[in-house]
């Protein structure tokens, strides 16, 4: 019984730590290194990036959620640090216009094709 519970604990802990690591990488990949040119924190070797990496690592270990960590960093450094642009008032156009354009393009295409089909009839 003891062995069983131990293996269960071990199994879950390994799963959890594995997930933690992925979470950290995902966060770091979505952060901009402010002192570099367009590089992500994950890719950068700069001093600033190394510090942020450690801070994110700590926060993940302390159990903060992804959202909380993004929020913490954007509060300190502005939305500029987030490569995954948050959906806010100032980014509605960015997030929705592509879909609108796709639908408009499709409608236009449909009209053109229909018009031309009718003519042949």
């Amino acid at each position: 019984m003891k062995i069983l519970s131990l293996t269960i604990v071990l199994f879950f802990s390994s799963v959890i730590s594995y997930c933690d690591e992925n979470k950290t990488y995902e966060i770091l990949k979505n952060l901009r290194c402010l002192v570099c040119q367009g590089q992500t924190i994950s890719d950068s070797n700069s001093d600033f990036a190394l510090t942020i990496k450690e801070v994110v690592n700590e926060k993940v270990e302390e159990g903060f959620s992804k959202k909380e960590i993004y929020h913490f960093l954007s509060d300190k450094y502005g939305d500029w640090i987030l490569f995954n642009t948050p959906l806010k008032k100032n980014s509605y156009i960015l997030w929705f216009v592509p879909y609108v354009l796709f639908i408009l393009g499709g409608a236009l295409l449909y009209l053109v094709i229909r018009k031309r089909t009718e003519k042949t009839k």
Partner: peptide, 13 residues
């Protein structure tokens, strides 16, 4: 010494 606390003030250089 580790620069981590400065993150709370938005320090990057």
């Amino acid at each position: 010494p580790e620069g981590k606390k400065s993150v709370n003030f938005g320090i990057y250089g």
